[in-house]
Design a protein around this nucleic acid. Sequence first.
DNA 1: CGCATTTTAATTGTGCGCAATTGAATTCGA
DNA 2: TCGAATTCAATTGCGCACAATTAAAATGCG
Lengths: 148, 148
Amino acid sequence: MRRKADESLRLDNQVCFAVYAAGHAFTRAYKPLLGKLGLTYPQYLVMLLLWEHDGPTMREIGERLHLDSGTLTPLLKRLETMGLVHRARLPEDERQLRVTLTDKGRALREAAADVPRAIGCASGLAPDEAKRLRHELVALQAALARAQ
Amino acid sequence: MRRKADESLRLDNQVCFAVYAAGHAFTRAYKPLLGKLGLTYPQYLVMLLLWEHDGPTMREIGERLHLDSGTLTPLLKRLETMGLVHRARLPEDERQLRVTLTDKGRALREAAADVPRAIGCASGLAPDEAKRLRHELVALQAALARAQ
DNA sequence: CGCATTTTAATTGTGCGCAATTGAATTCGA
DNA sequence: TCGAATTCAATTGCGCACAATTAAAATGCG
C-alpha cells in the first residue's frame, strides 16, 4: 500500500491541475470563435464587462477581472488601437482612467452574441450543471483568496 | 424581464470565467509556497511528474500537461540551469529528449512534501468534495477537447 | 536504395499575468 | 497650509502559452 504523502504528490490527485487544464481547454475552445472577432479571451472579458455596463474605470475593471495595471494597460491600448474602446482621464481625478465603448465596440456585441451558446454546447454541461459548477468554483476562489 | 441573449453575455453567468478566476486564485495561493522552493507552478507540475515517474521524454511531458515545445523547451532549460533536471537525447532516436532528475531534483521532493496539504487546507475543500470537483473538471476538459 | 513524408525539439513572435518600481495626482494630518 | 502618505496608471522585467516556422532525425514507400 502506498503511503499518504506519496499519494498527495501525484498529479492526478490535484484539483489545481484539473482547474489549470480546464482553463487551457476553454481557451482553446474560445480561440476559433474569438479569432473571428479579432479578440483574445482576456480582451473578450473586458468587452463583456463594457457591454454589460459601459464606462468603468481601469481600477474597476481590474477588481472585477482580478487583473492589475501591468496586464490591463497594454491590453486596453490594444483594444483602443483596434478602435473598440476609448480611454480618457477623469476630469475630477486625473489619476483615474475611464474606458468607454466606441460605436465599433458596441457593434461587436451582435457578432459576439452566439459565442456563449457555442461554448455552452462544447462544454456538454446542462444549464443547471453549469450553474452549480460555477458556484463551486466561485466558492473555491473565495476560499483561496480568504486564505490569502 | 431581461432577454435570453443578454443574460448569456453577462460575465457572472459564465463557467469559463469562474474557471479562469479560480486558476488565478490557485496560482496566487501556490506562489509563496513554491517561491520557497524556487519554482513556478508550471515548473512544479513538471517536477511532480518526474517525482512520480522519472525519465519521460519531452513529448510525454507535453502530452500529460498539454504543453508544447514552445513552452517546455525554455522551462526545462531553466530547471536544468537550476540543477534540478538533466536533458539528454535518446541514443536510439536523436530527435527525442529524455528528462531525468538530478540528486538535487530528487532531494527537492522532501521540501515539497507539505505543499499539497497546505493548498488543500487553503481551498477549504473536504477530500471527497475535492475529488468530485476534480472529476467534473476532468470531464469538462474532455468534453471541450472532444468538441475540438 | 533514395527520396518524400512524418516526427520531434528548437526558435520566433505575440499576448497575457504578475511583482516591483516610478511618477503624478490626490488626500490626510499635524 | 504644507509636507507625508496614499492612490492610480504606466513601465520594466520575467515566465508562461501558443501559433507558425525551421531544422534535424527517423520512417515509409516506390
